[in-house]
Amino acid sequence: METQDFYDAARHGDTEAVRLFIEAGMDPNKQARYGFPPLIGASYYGATEIVDMLLDAGSNPNVQGNRGETALRFAASEGHDSIVALLLQFGADPNIEQREGRTALMGAALGGHVDVIERLLDAGADPLVRSEEGETARSIAQAQGHKEANRILMCAAEEQKDNSAG
C-alpha cells in the first residue's frame, strides 16, 4: 500500500479504503507524491467523514504540505465550514502562514465565505496579518467584491487594534 493511494482514497471520500489504510497502520501525516498528506486532500475536497476519521486516528490538524499549506487553509478557501469546525476542535492553529504568508482567514476571505470567516475569527484568527505581498484578509475580500466579508473583517481589525491599544 502506498501513501498516494491513501491520499487518493481520502480525497475521494472512500471511507472503507481509508479505514483499511488506518487499520494497516499507515501514517496519516505522511505526504503523498505531490506533497500533501491525506488530511489535506480530504479537507480540500470536502470529505467531512474522512477528516473526522483521520483526526480520530491521530492525524495532526496542523500538518503541512510541501509549501506550508494546511488542511485548515484549504477547507477555509473552499468554504467547508463543517471541516473548519472539526479541524479547530482538534486544535488546528488558524494563524499558520503558508510560504507566501497566507493564512486560512485569507483563504476564506478570497472566497467570501462569511460563516468560515466568523468561525476563524472566533477561534483567534488574526485579521491584521499581512502576506508577503502586503495583503490582509480584508484587502483580499475587498478586492474580490465580498462586501459582507469585508465588513466583518474591517470590524474585527478595528476591534483588535482597539484591544492592542488599550
Rank of each mutant, 00 (worst) to 15 (best):
A76C: 06
E2L: 12
I22A: 04
G68Q: 07
E158S: 09
I50E: 06
V129M: 06
P37G: 05
N66Q: 14
R11L: 15
Y45M: 11
I83R: 06
E132A: 15
R73D: 12
L121P: 05
A71V: 07
P61T: 08
A71W: 12
R67V: 13
A104C: 01
T103N: 05
G68D: 05
D93S: 02
A92H: 12
G107A: 06
A71F: 11
N29P: 09
Q64I: 14
Q89D: 13
P28M: 10
G58T: 08
A32C: 05
M106A: 00
L105P: 12
A17S: 10
A47K: 12
N163Q: 13
L110A: 11
T136D: 08
F36S: 14
A42H: 01
S77K: 13
G111Y: 08
T70R: 03
A42M: 06
G13H: 03
S164D: 10
K30G: 02
T70M: 14
A92K: 03
A125G: 10
A109N: 00
I40D: 02
R151P: 00
K161A: 05
T15H: 11
I22M: 09
S139A: 10
Q4A: 14
L121K: 01
S82I: 12
Q89T: 13
P28R: 09
A24P: 03
N62W: 12
T48D: 08
A47T: 00
E49L: 11
Y44T: 14
G68P: 06
L88F: 08
A123W: 05
M106P: 02
M26D: 11
Y34N: 08
N60T: 06
R67T: 05
A109C: 09
R138T: 02
Y45L: 10
G91I: 10
D126I: 01
G101T: 02
M26H: 14
N150E: 14
L120T: 01
T70I: 12
P61W: 07
M26F: 15
G65M: 11
V51Q: 02
Y7D: 09
E16A: 15
L105N: 02
D126F: 00
A24R: 08
A109K: 05
